[in-house]
């Protein structure tokens, strides 16, 4: 079982990234559960997406202790950092988050801008990085999930961002 938490602020597409990761797991026939938590503000408040992926049945309906935390913004990081396991994996946008523990990461937002010209594809970059680092799902499944979930006409640009993050993660 892997408990993954993505944290950022509203508008970064954190929830969509969680949904796509979950969908990818679903495509592979794994047990999966995805939830989210956000403040009343539609934009700018913290935004959290949780994904639990497991071969066994899942009984908890929330992330109890994260194995992986992907932080795209300081606010999101501060909100949930305590719930990452001590030996868990912290992945951050190195431009936007100043962590107080060991981490891996890359400037996801910058990579997004450079790759697609759109900062809002940061969620896909981070997702690609996460998948490369953890191997929790196959990259093909994620591509399929992206095609299913993103608005029509934006599939390729999102996949491009995802692949950029994936490549970065393999480094």
């Amino acid at each position: 079982m892997m408990q993954i938490r993505l944290a950022g602020i509203g508008g970064q597409g954190v929830v969509l990234a969680g949904v796509i990761l979950g969908e990818a797991a679903a495509i592979e026939g794994l047990n999966v559960l995805q939830t989210q938590d956000y403040s009343s503000a539609s934009r700018g408040g913290h935004s959290i997406a949780d994904v639990i992926i497991s071969k066994e049945p899942i009984y908890d309906v929330m992330v109890t202790r994260a194995d992986v935390l992907v932080a795209l913004h300081q606010l999101g990081y501060d909100t949930v950092k305590d719930e990452l396991r001590e030996d868990g994996l912290l992945i951050i946008d190195t431009d936007l988050v100043k962590p107080d523990r060991e981490y891996v990461g890359a400037p996801f937002t910058r990579i997004a801008e450079e790759t697609t010209g759109l900062a809002l594809t940061v969620n896909m970059v981070a997702l690609g990085y996460l998948v490369a680092k953890t191997g929790v799902v196959k990259k093909e499944s994620v591509e399929e999930a992206i095609r299913r979930r993103v608005p029509k006409g934006t599939e390729e640009i999102n996949i491009k961002a995802f692949m950029a993050g994936y490549e970065e993660g393999l480094k």
């Binding site: 047990n31 999966v32 559960l33 995805q34 939830t35 309906v61 929330m62």
Partner: peptide, 9 residues
């Protein structure tokens, strides 16, 4: 509200 917003297979 928990199950309402939980995505599952």
């Amino acid at each position: 509200g928990v199950l309402a917003h939980t995505r599952e297979l």
